[in-house]
Amino acid sequence: MDILNAIVALSNFVLIPAIAYGSQLAIGALGVTLIYDILRFSNFAHGDTMAFGTMVTILFTWLFQSMGITLGPLPTALLALPLGIAATGLLVLGTDRMVYRFYRRQKAAPVVFVIVSIGVMFIMNGLVRFIIGPGDQRFADGARFIISARDFKAWSGLNEGLALKTSQAITVVVAVMVVAALFWFLNRTRTGKSMRAYSDNEDLALLSGINPERVVLVTWLIVAALATVAGVLYGLDKSFKPFTYFQLLLPIFASAIVGGLGSPLGAIAGGFVIAFSEVLVTYPLKKILGYLLPESLEPNGLVQLLSTDYKFAVSFVILVIVLLFRPTGLFRGKSV
């Protein structure tokens, strides 16, 4: 019984939140890694791209809600998501046309692109705050739980409850769909393969008649979709705040780099590594250990290795360790 309780507590407080958070990071990191693959720079504006997409989705969600359109138990935001993606697609394409394309033609160094992306970051950040304000927004509606802790206790007779939030289930389902679609696209379609070819060997891709501008265009559209999906899932699960999204840049980059910058599989693995470490290290394990250890060994403290505010430290330490011992990441990434 105690072991069951421990497993349930672990699932409830660590596994489920970490899987949801890991999926969100993974989709975010996929966007970063694709930009790195095709446009060959680290996009500092990615967090703010996510914020923009989420903001548009929220605005449409409000519009739908005011019109009385909902999805029943599912959050209305899912209905608004395609519109958010479309708007973000237009934004990043506009940015590419007005900003990045100039430097691409100049064949500017990657670090110039990074600095340019900092400028873009400022603009997108300002834009989002200007439109929706810097405050916290909650936009999840519909049923809050699929399984609530109380129902689970009644059903199982255990002391520990297991809660599964709708947002968590949606995150995982959507993440699986997005990742499957992305890999299908990259590995099975002509355009997807041409993107991989361009990323692999730009000169040879040109010789093969692959149009680089088209590859870049498709990449931006995919990135816009990934960023918006990641942002909306994160916002549904927690809440939307422009500054938080800007800060997500760090765990997202950590995920992409830990997995191997430029490797889509690595981005996913990295997302889960970072999410699990963050949750494990900052969660008080007393409850779980309490079930497993005999009373005499039961810990006095909370057995929280680090306070939750140190979650950045976790991403960072993993990042540094991986870079020191395996500089190209878990899955062999590429370096520009």
């Binding site: 393969k193 041409s194 692999d200 060997n201 891709a205 093969s208 008649g209």
Partner: peptide, 19 residues
């Protein structure tokens, strides 16, 4: 640098026929 190293042989040929 005359092949796409990360792609399969068949994909390399497909990319050759891209046009």
């Amino acid at each position: 640098h005359n092949i796409f190293t990360s792609m399969t042989v068949e994909e390399n040929l497909e990319m050759g026929a891209f046009i």
